[in-house]
């Protein structure tokens, strides 16, 4: 175990041009933790993920991965750090002109010395983990949306990265596949020691896998709750968090509606 946290975020402010999306974000993710980012649609979860994987530069604040400040490191160092992470994008982001097998083969060919036969074997193992055994030779346009999502997941896991970022991995999946995905995420952490950062709306899976969570709010533009999802459900007194975690079963939904009308 390292003496610093796997991921540390200090005073992060995210903005598109002049429009600030979120400000003053502070949180840490420990090695081997499953960390959930929650929040309403459009509050900036995907944007936060883009910052964490080094695609966007913070407007203010610092991001440390394994103790290295991402944006004070040289371009080379940054690429090196980022290549050790696996990312699943919200839209899958598979390369449309390659088959699923070729999609997964790209990182394997780039970063390992495996032979062609071994790469084929690794691909079929990764695809079977996400329930897509046998779909090696399909193009992304020939499979369904949920299947594309799972194939993106297989690509993100190709190199057994030590940190994984998943943007809504279970969106578009049936309950059974979604459950298997939760098991897979837990197993990646338990057996390979991977740190997993997930953006998710799926309450069942948030409670099933999440060790720690933050809740972003688009009105106050910052984190309004931090903690283990179950504890947040039991003890958070913030009505916004409670409404989210109980699917608006509790809290002041009615008065809210009245004020809007």
């Amino acid at each position: 175990m390292t003496e610093y946290h796997h991921l540390e975020i200090h005073n992060l402010t995210m903005a598109y041009g002049d429009i600030v999306i979120q400000e003053n974000l502070n949180f840490t993710v420990k090695q081997g933790e499953i960390f959930v980012i929650m929040g309403g649609s459009g509050c900036g979860k995907s944007t936060l993920l883009r910052h964490l994987v080094g695609l966007m530069q913070p407007a203010e604040g610092d991001i440390f991965i394994n103790g290295v400040n991402l944006w004070q490191a040289s371009q080379m160092e940054r690429n090196e750090i980022i290549s050790h992470s696996g990312v699943l994008y919200q839209g899958g982001a598979l390369w449309s002109s390659m088959t699923l097998a070729e999609n997964i083969a790209v990182p394997l060919m780039e970063y390992t010395q495996l032979t062609e036969k071994q790469i084929t074997d690794v691909i079929s193992y990764k695809l079977s983990l996400v329930g897509l055994a046998g779909f090696e030779d399909y193009y992304p346009s020939e499979i369904s949306g949920g299947m594309q999502k799972r194939a993106g997941l297989a690509r993100a896991m190709a190199l057994d990265p030590d940190i994984l970022f998943f943007d809504e991995p279970s969106a578009g999946l049936d309950p059974i596949s979604s459950r298997l995905l939760d098991d897979l995420i837990l197993e990646l952490r338990d057996s390979l020691g991977a740190t997993v950062v997930i953006v998710s709306h799926e309450l069942a899976s948030i409670f099933a896998v999440g060790d720690q969570a933050i809740f972003l709010d688009s009105d106050s533009k910052t984190i309004i709750a931090t903690g283990a999802p179950k504890e947040l459900l039991e003890s958070s007194d913030d009505p916004r968090v409670r409404r989210f975690l109980t699917r608006a079963a509790h809290g002041s939904m009615e008065t809210e509606v009245r004020t809007y009308v």
Partner: peptide, 8 residues
């Protein structure tokens, strides 16, 4: 997990 979903 790898064998949970048999090949279609």
């Amino acid at each position: 997990l790898a064998f949970a979903v048999p090949e279609r």
